[in-house]
């Protein structure tokens, strides 16, 4: 509103209220801080509750005391989990699966996005939309046919995929590849056409244009896609619950609930500890990549 008034050349004599801009801004800031605080509280309460509970003994958790305070802090839950081979196996499986899935996803979606964004071939636009549509099919709908598929595949070839952690390396990319490809198409499309034309004149092949120009220029997008792929494969619950059952094949989210809930006995202390420890790697990776992400965005933005 204020800016419209300021550039209204048809009415130069009108009494423009200077300062209304900053008043608007002040209120906008107040409102944003209000909602940001609200949202921060909303999203921080569960992890804080997890932390508090993880420091309690089972006796204290079940006692009817103030749940928001630790009266006898103990690290026994942490010691218990970190010394249990089972938990470390879950952790290792999760790490393997996530790292491999991120690698596979990037190896597929980056070249795919490059081809769909830049090499205009017959049906490329339809294909790009199709890639995104596959992402819209929910995993709750897909796990049954996928299970059947792996079972039949096992019968035919004798290669047993069900109840092996590496079956997830085939399943997870169905979730991560479409979305990452879509993100990367957007990033690649925003790179000016002249840049690849310049590369073509410089004598670069398609592959060199991708690796020497597009990937470095689209690094922030690449990192966003990596974070997404990692988060999805680290936190995925339904597929590992369906496809893996033996304790040595389980990943963290499924492992925690199957090994720490025995019948109707919930070992809350260790469940919370496990959830907290499980949430740590994405947080650490995110914090680390965030710096890089911002650095990539602002590099060279200032003069001198």
């Amino acid at each position: 509103m204020a800016s419209t008034v300021a550039i209204d050349k048809a009415a130069p004599t009108r009494n423009v209220k200077y300062g209304s801009m900053s008043r608007d801004r002040t209120w906008a800031l107040r409102w944003s801080y209000f909602f940001l605080t609200l949202f921060a509280i909303f999203s921080l309460v569960p992890p804080i509750y997890m932390l508090i509970t993880s420091l309690k003994t089972s006796a204290e958790i079940s006692a009817a005391t103030n749940p928001w305070w630790v009266f006898h802090p103990t690290l026994s839950n942490y010691v218990g989990l970190l010394t249990s081979n089972q938990f470390l196996t879950f952790f290792r499986n999760s790490a393997f699966v996530s790292i491999f899935v991120v690698t596979i996803t990037m190896l597929i979606s980056v070249p795919a996005a490059f081809a769909l964004a830049r090499m205009r071939f017959w049906g490329s636009a339809t294909l790009a939309t199709g890639v995104f549509l596959t992402y819209l099919i929910p995993d709750t709908l897909l796990f049954l046919p996928l299970f059947k598929m792996f079972a039949v595949f096992g019968d035919w070839t004798g290669i047993q995929l069900i109840n092996r952690w590496y079956v997830l390396l085939i399943v997870y990319p169905t979730l991560t590849v479409p979305f990452c490809t879509w993100i990367m198409i957007g990033y690649f499309a925003s790179i000016p056409k002249e840049l690849d034309e310049a590369a073509i004149i410089d004598g670069a092949s398609w592959f060199q244009t991708l690796t020497r120009i597009f990937i470095p220029v689209a690094m922030p997008g690449l990192i966003a896609a990596t974070i997404f792929a990692f988060t999805v494969s680290w936190a995925q619950f339904l597929y590992p619950l369906v496809f893996t059952t033996s304790t040595d094949q389980l990943v963290l989210p499924v492992g925690i609930i199957t090994s720490l809930i025995k019948g109707d006995v919930f070992n809350w202390g260790q469940i919370m500890t496990g959830a907290l420890l499980g949430a740590a790697p994405p947080l650490i990776i995110y914090a680390f990549l965030m710096d890089y992400y911002i650095a990539g965005l602002t590099a060279g933005a200032t003069k001198g």
């Binding site: 002249e194 034309e197 004149i201 410089d202 470095p216």
Partner: peptide, 24 residues
């Protein structure tokens, strides 16, 4: 060729930009 908007590779220094073709 020089493009209207110069088409400089934003992630390379001046020297790297200039030598890109030669390096390829």
């Amino acid at each position: 060729m020089v493009f209207q908007n110069y088409a400089l590779y934003p992630h390379m220094t001046v020297a790297e930009n200039m030598s890109f073709g030669l390096r390829l």
